[in-house]
């Protein structure tokens, strides 16, 4: 395999760019959203205490929303990876030997 040639291939470069942007932004969103929970509990106790549904308060809703966030990020990533990244990678795998031979 000519790895340098595959790495330099425009299709691989596009996969690299799209994937990097997508992965690191999802990662940043999830870490920031996660840390908002303990920091919010410490800095905005009044807000967390506010009742919204019977005894259920904002703090509980926010903690539950962390589960929705984690599952949501996983769903968005899996769908995008399955529809786009896998197809782009499959194309490169198919042509890998040819890319090396041509250069």
């Amino acid at each position: 395999m000519n790895w340098q040639a595959i790495d330099a291939d425009p299709r691989f470069q596009r996969l690299h760019r799209e994937k990097s942007r997508f992965l690191w932004s999802l990662m940043a969103v999830s870490i920031v959203y996660y840390l908002m929970l303990p920091l919010g509990a410490a800095w905005f106790p009044e807000l967390f205490r506010t009742r919204v549904w019977g005894p259920v308060n904002v703090g509980l809703v926010f903690a539950l929303s962390e589960f929705v966030m984690a599952w949501g990020v996983a769903f968005v990533y899996a769908r995008h990876a399955g529809r786009r990244f896998d197809a782009m990678a499959a194309e490169l795998v198919r042509d890998a030997a040819a890319i090396g031979a041509a250069s």
Binding site: W3, I6, D7, F12, L15, A89, L92, V93, A96
Partner: peptide, 8 residues
């Protein structure tokens, strides 16, 4: 980097 992204 190519292998981790493509699985070749």
């Amino acid at each position: 980097y190519v292998r981790q992204n493509t699985g070749i």
